[in-house]
Design a protein around this nucleic acid. Structure first.
Length: 181
DNA sequence: CCGAGGATCATCT
DNA sequence: GATGATCCTCGGT
């Protein structure tokens, strides 16, 4: 039996962030797949000062308190959107931020969606991959299965590198950023 | 490759 | 009023 992505997401965010490496994320656009393999993730939990849910539920972070498999997309720096997959049990307020993909399919579409000088910059950042795949911010709060996204198993990473998370001021001591090696 | 600086605005204090 | 779970450009190494 093929493993379902919910089996990965129903664990805690730190475990799920590692388990998602190697999975393939695509958006279905005009009958073609646009996306690639997940190679960089970060975990965020409610007890963590860097997490959006650290100070409780608000209208923005409400999707993070939904069931595992819910999409949480937030707006930041006045211009960027980033996507998370909610993990754990309903009400936990935890998620995995998708930070990087290895482009595999629909590369020409990604080039058009992004205005990147080189292909290396298509999906190597959380806001870049959202733009490259054409992820719709209106999907925030929906289960992944109710969007046009596809998340399917891929080749497992040979090794996982564990480092501090990027762009945060608190919680730097937690080594919750994971990259495929 | 690396660091500095700016863009730009929703969200929360 | 301050701050971002970021990205791009530009200049230096």
């Amino acid at each position: 039996m093929t493993k379902n992505y919910l089996d990965v997401l129903r664990t805690d965010a730190v475990t799920a962030a590692q388990g998602l490496l190697g999975w393939e994320l695509y958006n279905r656009v005009n009958g073609q797949l646009v996306g690639g393999q997940i190679i960089e993730t970060e975990a965020y939990t409610q007890e963590d000062p860097a997490c959006h849910t650290y100070r409780g539920q608000t209208s923005r972070n409400a999707p993070m308190f939904s069931a595992a498999g819910t999409v949480y997309i937030y707006f930041t720096y006045g211009m960027h959107w980033c996507m998370n997959l909610v993990t754990g049990s309903e009400g936990h307020g935890e998620a995995v931020l998708l930070r990087g993909l290895q482009p595999l399919q629909g590369i020409e579409t990604m080039r058009q969606n992004r205005n990147a000088a080189v292909d290396k910059n298509l999906c190597n950042g959380p806001a870049k991959l959202v733009q490259a795949l054409g992820i719709d911010p209106a999907w925030t709060g929906k289960p992944l299965s109710e969007t046009s996204l596809l998340l399917r198993p891929g080749e497992r990473p040979k090794q996982i590198r564990t480092t501090a998370r990027i762009g945060i001021s608190e919680g730097r001591e937690k080594l919750w950023r994971f990259t495929s090696q």
